[in-house]
């Protein structure tokens, strides 16, 4: 398994380099550069002024040279500095954003897994009932609602109308830190992030449970007089979890996409908001650094899913 893991990690590193090249090229194909994002049409700027600004930012060098310089610096642990006015180091910026993004994503996922598994089991056990129909309908809404729409509706309903949660940010400015303050800011974006994921988990868990509940060993357990609760909790749920684990692992990597929308709407100071702002301002070093970190996250999560799957199910061998 160690050899397999190392091979997958090496392939992941190669994929990251390919990803960085692709992003670099796409960025340069997009109209506008950091200088264009920098200036105001009402300010008199001569071509010479703009050329001077571009040279200061190192944008006057040939593209392959710019890329190789960036790659060399990254391999030496230097991700560069933001091209925006505060000129913060990219690594420090990313470092300060990973925590909030992980907090949001893992909270959302935690809620999604708990609610999704419970709802999936209930739905399967009560197949055909009103409860089953309601849960399926909610799940259908969940999987078909785009994250930005759910976020906007949630913001309006729970913040503006009901005043149950703050409208954005991670902590109340100018106030000492408190756990309640953090949780009150976290809960709404986390629930909205969880909405889609829990709907997915519900549907997968339900169908997996329905399949397991028709197996011979379940029938045998019933014939032996084992209580229904025990059959479900000890025999059915455990076996039904396998495909759901795969789903959770693969979507955990991709969930960062949903987090980008959520962070933008709620002004949550994570990687998503950092990336969106950087794209608007054509802040190349921040975009490249953020993409690299997000790409690494997706790759590592996929490898981890494969490994966890092998651990859970002894029949599966990774090689």
């Amino acid at each position: 398994m160690l050899r397999y893991t190392l091979k997958r990690l090496a392939a992941g590193a190669a994929m990251l380099i390919a990803l960085s090249m692709l992003v670099f090229i796409l960025l340069r194909l997009a109209p506008g550069d950091p200088v264009d994002a920098y200036i105001d049409p009402m300010v008199k700027m001569s071509a010479a002024d703009m050329a001077r600004l571009r040279a200061e930012l190192g944008l006057d060098k040939p593209l392959p040279v710019q890329y190789l310089i960036w790659l060399r610096d990254v391999l030496h642990g230097d991700f560069g500095r933001s091209l925006q006015r505060t000129g913060e180091p990219v690594l420090a910026l990313i470092g300060s954003r990973i925590g909030p993004t992980l907090l949001l994503m893992l909270s959302g996922f935690g809620i999604a897994i708990i609610f999704g598994l419970i709802a999936g089991v209930v739905s399967a056990v009560k197949r055909g009932s009103v409860r089953d129909g309601t849960l399926l309908a909610v799940a259908a809404v969940g999987v078909s609602s785009p994250a930005f729409l759910t976020a906007l509706i949630g913001l309006y309903l729970f913040s503006v109308v009901l005043h149950w949660a703050p409208s954005g940010g991670m902590l109340t400015p100018a106030m000492p830190f408190s756990l309640h303050d953090l949780l009150s800011h976290l809960i709404l974006p986390a629930l909205i992030l969880a909405f889609y994921q829990s709907a997915l988990v519900t549907r997968y868990m339900r169908s997996s449970m329905l399949e397991v509940l028709t197996q011979d060993y379940i029938r045998t357990a019933r014939a032996k007089g084992v209580r229904e609760n025990r059959i479900v909790s000890h025999h059915a749920v455990r076996n039904a979890l396998l495909p759901v684990v795969t789903l959770i692992g693969s979507t955990l990597g991709l969930a960062v996409g949903g987090a980008i929308f959520i962070e933008s709407v709620f002004n949550w100071p994570g990687m998503g908001l950092l990336l969106v702002n950087a794209v608007e301002l054509r802040d190349y070093p921040v975009i490249m650094g953020s993409t690299l970190v997000i790409g690494a996250w997706v790759i590592v999560m996929n490898i981890a899913t494969d490994l966890v799957y092998a651990v859970i199910d002894p029949r599966v061998k990774v090689s």
């Binding site: 809620i111 708990i114 419970i118 089991v121 209930v122 056990v125 009560k126 729970f158 009901l162 005043h163 149950w164 949660a165 703050p166 109340t172 309640h180 303050d181 949780l183 009150s184 976290l186 809960i187 709404l188 986390a190 629930l191 229904e228 609760n229 479900v232 909790s233």
Partner: peptide
Amino acid sequence: GLIGNRTLAAVTSAALALTGLAPVAGW
């Protein structure tokens, strides 16, 4: 059933209470 209505409601309420989702006037 495995999880009744009351259990489900209790779990939901507890989760909401733990996460701090409550009227936040005056923050």
